[in-house]
Write a protein that binds this DNA or RNA. Structure first.
Lengths: 206, 206
DNA sequence: CTGTATACATTCGCGCATGTATGTATAATC
DNA sequence: GATTATACATACATGCGCGAATGTATACAG
């Protein structure tokens, strides 16, 4: 067996990415071997080294492969004018995050990898900022939404949109962290909806 | 050079622990070498293997060495009857956490290690539960405090102590996570006091 | 004062992961 | 239809980290 079609090559590349996700999740990034990845994909290390320079580049590919679609979904919710009340848009976006988590095992897997199975040192030190939380752009979108709400008089008086956005952002990060580390216990998951509602409700005018 | 006093041996053990903390923090746990640790402590791998079975046992020693004192401090605040209003005790405990963070570089270092430089897979998979957040006992103490507050009519009506405790616990986890990953930027640190105050204020009766 | 356990240093052998170099059959290009 | 670039597999060289075995000088127990 030797040379494949360009389309076939793309498929093997995708197979390597998915194999890597599973292996990283199982053994942790540092202790994962490119041999293990190749083996899981039904290939040899030669294939891996052809498509990716090293383990780090492979890791980046796995990351964007999973998160790019999710970022799209969140952006459309927060930026669309579908919701009259910006706080409703925020609440919907928060729910969307955990809906995605429920629907996509791959997202859960990748989050677990990033939060629990990856050491951000040396080459990986640079990844951390852009991989943290739901992304910095999300924080900015939140601030936008809170400002709009404040302008419409829909935000609880005496609260600052900037710090509210930060607070929500941290809330989401904490929730994700808690969900991941608690292994998505049902007892925990069922509370998420009410916690999100409570979180946003505290920001609405009394 | 050879055999040392029992007291001297304890000191070298402590030196190994501190060297390990620095090396773990710099290279990540998985990529740290016992050789590097020994070298940093001015010793050889022989010494390390004498005091600790392997890297994992050493890691556990580093962890308890840093956190045991901190747990003591928090427990005394939450369990002492010093505060008439339990919500004040909670607020004080939250402040205490970040006071400790400000005072103790070793605690910051260890948190960074646990959140960013450690892969919880294989042997390390078991550490995660007991190392997560400020500890599960802290969550229980929070629930106690909220229940007392509710009994005294000092908790905002319509709120459940159990979910309030969970919410605060997650808030702290998210804050720690954010502080660590944001590298303790001043802009961020200065907001912590007000964020804690706002968090607790939302739970007081209107 | 003698023997034994201690607190390390030194040495050795091994396996394994990495990176690269080379082989090779076949798409793609013209 | 010959050439070239592609998409891998295979083979090789290297180093590094680990665990254990061994050595050794000294504190300590009796």
């Amino acid at each position: 067996m030797a040379r494949k079609t360009k389309a076939e090559a793309l498929r093997t590349r995708q197979q390597i990415i998915e194999a890597a996700r599973h292996v990283f999740h199982e053994h942790g990034v540092a202790r994962s071997t490119l041999e293990q990845v190749a083996c899981r994909a039904g290939l040899t290390r030669g294939a891996v080294y052809w498509h990716f320079k090293d383990k780090f580049e492979l890791f980046q590919a796995v990351r964007t492969d999973v998160f790019d679609p999710m970022h799209e979904r969140l952006a459309t919710i927060l930026l669309t004018g579908r919701y009259g009340n910006p706080l409703d848009a925020i609440e919907a976006a928060l729910h969307e995050i955990f809906l995605v988590l429920d629907e996509c095992p791959t997202v859960r897997q990748m989050l677990e990898i990033m939060l629990l199975r990856c050491e951000y040192a040396n080459e990986f030190a640079d990844v951390q900022p852009e991989s943290e939380h739901p992304g910095v752009e999300f924080l900015e979108s939140l601030e936008d939404a809170y400002k709009k709400a404040a302008a419409k008089g829909l935000l609880r008086p005496g609260t600052d949109p900037k710090s509210m956005a930060l607070d929500t952002w941290i809330f989401v990060g904490g929730l994700l962290h808690a969900l991941i580390t608690r292994g998505f216990e049902e007892r925990f998951k069922s509370q998420v909806r009410t916690m999100i509602a409570a979180h946003v409700a505290l920001r609405r005018p009394a």
